[in-house]
Write a protein that binds this DNA or RNA. Structure first.
Lengths: 91, 91
DNA sequence: GATTAACATCGCCTTTCGTCGAAATACCCC
DNA sequence: GGGGTATTTCGACGAAAGGCGATGTTAATC
């Protein structure tokens, strides 16, 4: 029971613990990678707020981003999701 | 994609998004039902703080409690955990 | 190189969280 | 019913979250 790992898992859960962020992950899951504006368009918050949520998900390791010209593509981090699933399945 | 459900799922994730609460759920998972003091004894917080964490987990529907004399037994809510697993597995 | 577009970050404000110690509650036992 | 034990609730506080608008940054376009 590593404390380090616990911290990471808790951070991941915390990141998912907000309706907007949950929505972001689901959109990415459904559509695959999307650029930020496309995601933001479907969220009930302004762009700067959405960006904050992206940051939290990114720092929790749940999503990755790739810059492409003026756009920024986001996608789920499959590895992180796998670990999360593994943790949850042990419950 | 019901908004209602999303709210519940987000609440459950949020509840798990704190190291102490993660620890509580794991203790209950490992040991089965425990009374509050037994759990608190292993946590890095005082009793009143632990009680707050129990409350959050209870309100998120993740654990159940049963009064037994001066003690209070806590246990994980298997149904809620099943739902959570189902949700996560879709990611 | 100025302009526009797409995002991110900053600054600010308000609300919620996390924690503690103190007080309240519930129950048991003498 | 008085004292003791287990647990929750209350009250207070600093810390962090979540929101917005304004400002920065980067890159494509003219």
């Amino acid at each position: 029971m590593s404390k380090r790992k616990d911290q990471q898992i808790a951070e991941a859960f915390r990141a998912l613990g907000h309706p907007v962020r949950l929505q972001i992950v689901r959109i990415l899951q459904d559509e695959g990678a999307c650029f930020a504006g496309e995601i933001t368009r479907r969220l009930p918050v302004v762009a700067s707020t959405a960006s904050q949520h992206f940051k939290i998900l990114r720092e929790a390791g749940l999503i990755n981003d790739a810059v492409d010209g003026p756009h920024r593509y986001y996608s789920v981090d499959k590895q992180a999701l796998r670990e999360l699933k593994r943790w949850v399945s042990k419950l």
